[in-house]
Design a protein around this nucleic acid. Structure first.
Lengths: 133, 133
DNA sequence: CTATTATAGACCCATAAAGTCTTTGAAAGG
DNA sequence: CCTTTCAAAGACTTTATGGGTCTATAATAG
């Protein structure tokens, strides 16, 4: 079990947008250079973030991606869910009634992790970065 | 990102052993029937648990698998680590120095989940099951 | 010695992640 | 209106891994 690389890229891209230019749009090639990956691949990831309402896109000259107005409230969990989906990490497939004790333990542990990820906003890290400069 | 089915099988098998016969060994075909999967596949999973020192195996007639002496202290996390490995769920591959803030957040969230999984022992659930009978 | 059981490893298949390429569509600016 | 610049969409390829089978080997009880 591993987080996908796409999640890593998404988190870094969001942090970069938040720390640099929440206002001005930034092109995908520029964003891709930071992480040394292909622009077309990153654009697929960004499109997911757009669909989830975290990022705005603008076509045409001087276009690009920028954060949406509500960006200060975006948490790690929001971004992870946008890429990985919102399904539970654990599914008990065994056919033994609806109340699987194991399932309950696994889900409650997962919720502990999600709670933490929900509490950390991308804006928190962006502040740390800009303060360090 | 999902837990593997093997983890699900391992947890259920451990629980079944703990709730049924911590003393007498149980054959893999019997264990496999419970979860409706092939004995050879389950044996691969059980071998991992043996190597991690949670389960004892005995070849030959009247052989099979049984829990080890220390079984009351075995946690969910122990079993999960035996199957999934102990690596972190998140690796920041981006080349930007050793102190990735994102990595730190992800790891600390993961530790919250692990803490919970470390606190729940398979013996706890086994007690619940036997008490319910 | 034989029946029974675990162990090991080669092997296969399906699915999903990871990434490329090409076409289409939208906007800005002359 | 035409061209340039950008994102969006989707087909496609590649690679890795989970999930599983099969067969041969080793250990042990009786």
């Amino acid at each position: 079990m591993k987080y996908s690389k796409a999640t890593n890229y998404a988190l870094h891209t969001m942090l970069h947008l938040a720390a640099a230019t929440p206002d001005k749009p930034m092109g995908v090639q520029q964003l891709a250079q930071q992480q040394k990956l292909s622009p077309t691949y990153l654009s697929k990831i960004l499109t997911k973030l757009v669909k989830e309402g975290m990022v705005q896109s603008a076509s045409g000259a001087n276009g690009g991606y920028s954060l949406k107005a509500n960006w200060e409230s975006i948490s790690f969990l929001d971004i992870i869910h946008a890429i990985e989906g919102k399904a539970s990490l654990f599914d008990c497939d065994v056919d033994h009634g609806p109340n699987c004790l194991i399932q309950q333990v696994m889900v409650s542990a997962e919720e502990k992790m999600e709670e933490e990820l929900r509490n950390v906003k991308i804006a928190d890290l962006a502040k740390e970065i800009t303060a360090a400069k």
